[in-house]
Design a protein around this nucleic acid. Sequence first.
DNA 1: AATGAATGAGTATTCATTCAT
DNA 2: TATGAATGAATACTCATTCAT
Lengths: 208, 208, 208, 208
Amino acid sequence: MARPRANRKALILKAAIKVFARHGFARARTAAIAREARVAEGTIYNYFKSKDDLILTIFEQTWRDLIQALRAALDPIRDPIQKLAVVLMTVLDLFEADPMLAEVFLVELRQSGKCFSNQPMSVILEFLDLLEAILKEGIAQGVIRKDINTKIARGLLFGAVENIVLGWLLRKTHPDLFKKEKPYTLAEAKETLMKLFATGFFVTPSHR
Amino acid sequence: MARPRANRKALILKAAIKVFARHGFARARTAAIAREARVAEGTIYNYFKSKDDLILTIFEQTWRDLIQALRAALDPIRDPIQKLAVVLMTVLDLFEADPMLAEVFLVELRQSGKCFSNQPMSVILEFLDLLEAILKEGIAQGVIRKDINTKIARGLLFGAVENIVLGWLLRKTHPDLFKKEKPYTLAEAKETLMKLFATGFFVTPSHR
Amino acid sequence: MARPRANRKALILKAAIKVFARHGFARARTAAIAREARVAEGTIYNYFKSKDDLILTIFEQTWRDLIQALRAALDPIRDPIQKLAVVLMTVLDLFEADPMLAEVFLVELRQSGKCFSNQPMSVILEFLDLLEAILKEGIAQGVIRKDINTKIARGLLFGAVENIVLGWLLRKTHPDLFKKEKPYTLAEAKETLMKLFATGFFVTPSHR
Amino acid sequence: MARPRANRKALILKAAIKVFARHGFARARTAAIAREARVAEGTIYNYFKSKDDLILTIFEQTWRDLIQALRAALDPIRDPIQKLAVVLMTVLDLFEADPMLAEVFLVELRQSGKCFSNQPMSVILEFLDLLEAILKEGIAQGVIRKDINTKIARGLLFGAVENIVLGWLLRKTHPDLFKKEKPYTLAEAKETLMKLFATGFFVTPSHR
DNA sequence: AATGAATGAGTATTCATTCAT
DNA sequence: TATGAATGAATACTCATTCAT
């Protein structure tokens, strides 16, 4: 009788991320995940209810880890602007460190019926709420303009970040699609993003 | 001589958008599309190579129509800022007028292997290029700041818009997910977006 | 309005032989036959009830032509041995002149449900009866041994000829399957066949 | 650990022979094979790549078994004539014992693209080579006439035997096609065949 | 007769999930 | 727990045939 290797669950999850990233959720085979995790197919079902449960768990767990990390990192910071910078940095660092996770996140999860069921949405909303709280804090402190709808503003931030990472990722994985362009680093992206969200596209007295 | 009944192709395409929006691409049945279009299943394959071809065609055709409309609308305008506003307005109008199309666009198409194959990416890039051209024009005219990477900035714009529309759509189709929130109109969203991209989040001399 | 081109039926039949020979009956498409015959798909059904009817017609017509030709050729001949030689020559000549017809005949038609339904079998039996009549004539004349079952003997002749032609055909169409062998002509085959059926494999006083 | 129930593969193969014999390859349903084998449809695909693979396996395995049996039976025999008799007997016995197998063999397998691909042809050639070796042995011993092309002669033998079995089979399965005839036994057929191949059709000094 | 667009019945195969060991 | 053989539901697509023109 085989003894359970430690961390079977984490092992399977990691394998699933790899396979989902490689083939996409729909074309990913549970057999491939099992092989990647060096586990029997049936074993997956000792830890997860279904293939859907696998991607949902990846999604949820990553968000939870991210939010927890964010709360810790944000706690000592007072300046809302600084807080936004930290959020951005944390997110970009996460995906830069684990591009396969980024792929699964950015590409696979928008399929309705997964992303938009209550379970994963509630954790996205938690992240959005965190963003909104920062905006509101900034408004209260008089640092951030108050003539904006914070619900809209937070989504705007979210989408911008998401697209930045997606663009960066695609330039890495499908360089042929962007033949004439030179890739950018996430650091550059972060800088541009902060500039634009801080003071906008326009040339105004505020930036020379 | 048997002539094809007119509209067949457009009819099928419209039916497909409806069914894809309702069930998602993966769970959509070709039988349902045929029924919706009041056409035999086989007829679909007289006009489209496969189910994939169907969604790809929707994707590509919509982009092409959009880009064409944009070029026409932008042509008489000189002010780059005004141009950005027109782009935004055109996109939001399109999706507001056809929420099912928006659903298919925003949700189904990011699945890799469809979205990231050359075919659909090239038309997305065309749109991104159009955005970038406006930014560059603004920079040349001295209206838009020049200390930004336009490749990054255009993606940032794109993502922000995409997320705005997605948020608006979800609030319409899954109101339960946003129980405590009041929905916003695309008009509101447009305003906030323009404000933020114009002069940024920060409170500066430029806005009171 | 298009005037019927002469020989539409024969034209279609010829195209069908070509397509059946190329792809086999099961994989042959009616569309391909129509294209080959430069005719609309629907036109085929003005002349033939179905795809099955096509191959059945080819089968039956070829046999009828062959039998008719045989009767004419055999009529003036008295010697049964000579008659057998003429039968053999006529059959081999037919297939040598039209290898595509041979392919369809030898390969496609054995599929049960076609070959073994009454229609085509009755014409095969007509051919077998013709063979048997020659054998019986030979027996009556004392030229052919009488200690054989003529039903069996005629099938034996038939199978031998069939296989000779099949072997010859395969060596032409799939030479790679017989790499080490040098092909033989139907003339050689006829000679060997006549020798063996005349006096057998054994070395006896009758052949040195 | 789940062990495969024994016999599965053989069980499915047997069921396939039955169903192919009953309906013909093209009209045979995988569902019917599964039902016949009392196995789930999917199980078939644990053992065979496809429906084609099923009939190819039947074909190849039967030939291999036959050839093996022949080698064993022929080994102790010296007389080439006797060897030919043994070959004939072995083949006829096989098909007499398993008429369904005979049906599949004789009827279904000539369809090009199956029979004429390298795989099954190579095993047929092995059988033909075996026949030819006997003929050559007979020639070397001076028992069999040397003025024949052994390539042609072996095909002639093959075809004759094939047709004998086919005729016998048809008389069993479609007696209506041969209304006026009395069926023959394979024993009779063997005798006639041996006589004819030994000393031929002609009345000569060698047979009274 | 000729056309060819429309039709829709028909089916092999896949693969997530189960369960006997 | 772990295994992996067995399961069987589920479905896009083909193509012979029809029929309105």
